[in-house]
Each structure stands twice: as C-alpha cells, then as structure tokens.
Amino acid sequence: MENEKNHIIPYRTFLFVLAGLITLTIISVTLTQISLGTLTVAAALLIAAVKSFFVLRIFMHLKFETRMFSIGVVAVTLLITVVIIITLLDYLFR
C-alpha cells in the first residue's frame, strides 16, 4: 500500500497516454466527417469516456490512490447519467 501510494509513474507511460489521447481526439473528429447518423453522439461520448478514463487513472493518479476516490467518481458519474436519462425519458415520451 505504502509503495503504491508513493509510486511515481514513469515518463514513458505519461507520453503513451498523451499519444493515445491525441489519437482518440483525431479519431473523434474524423468520425464526425463520415456521418454515422444517430450513432455519432454515442461514438463521440464513448470516445470522450475512454479519454476520461485515462486522464483519471493516470494523470489524476487514481490507479494508485485509495479506492474511495474511484468509487466517488463512479458514483457522481452514475448520478449524472441516471438523472439525464430519466429527464430525457420524461421529455421525449411525455
């Protein structure tokens, strides 16, 4: 535990993550040009979610912190998602 807490992520990992994030950004922009119809929003959000995962785990160091913070992030994200889904159901099928 103590070892993990003081873990210093190597340079290489950080650079790989940035390369991945930039690649995903470019993929996201390219996907917009080839229209996927209604799937576009889903694809854009999925890519954004994957990018967030890496920012949270590596840049924000969650991988090496107490589980409590990760659980909190998941809980807050779920709360927003559920509220958005319920509100949309209400608006669209009223």
Binding site: S28, V41, A44, A48, S52, V55
Partner: peptide
C-alpha cells in the same frame, strides 16, 4: 473540456 469539445464542435 474532453466532453465539451465533441458536444459543441462535433455535431452531425
């Protein structure tokens, strides 16, 4: 910003 970018710039 990771979420703002696709939601404002990448709408088809």
């Amino acid at each position: 910003w990771i979420f703002l970018f696709p939601l404002f710039y990448l709408i088809t």
